[in-house]
Amino acid sequence: MDNLILQLKNQIIEVLNLEDMTADDIATDAPLFGEGLGLDSIDALELIVLLEREYGIKLSNPAEGKQIFSSVASIADFVSKNRKK
């Protein structure tokens, strides 16, 4: 799980171009949206693409993402249960 969390943090930094950040800067349980990293609806869509490209998970409704993308921990939990690759 720890490996997956680290991997996810690095992937998030890459796809969202969080240029000046490292994996250590993202707290695993901290909210990603709103107060957290200040991400917006387009970032949520980018995360949907990330899940599909890297883990073979397809979300067809952006509303499903809301719960899943609340923190890195919740993404890791969802990925570990649903990943196809």
């Binding site: 796809v15 387009i42 869509l45 980018e46 693409v49 599909e52 490209r53």
Partner: peptide
């Protein structure tokens, strides 16, 4: 590269 899936919204936007 990816066909018509997994395309990035921020690039289009």
């Amino acid at each position: 590269r990816y066909g018509e899936n997994c395309l990035k919204p921020s690039l289009f936007m």
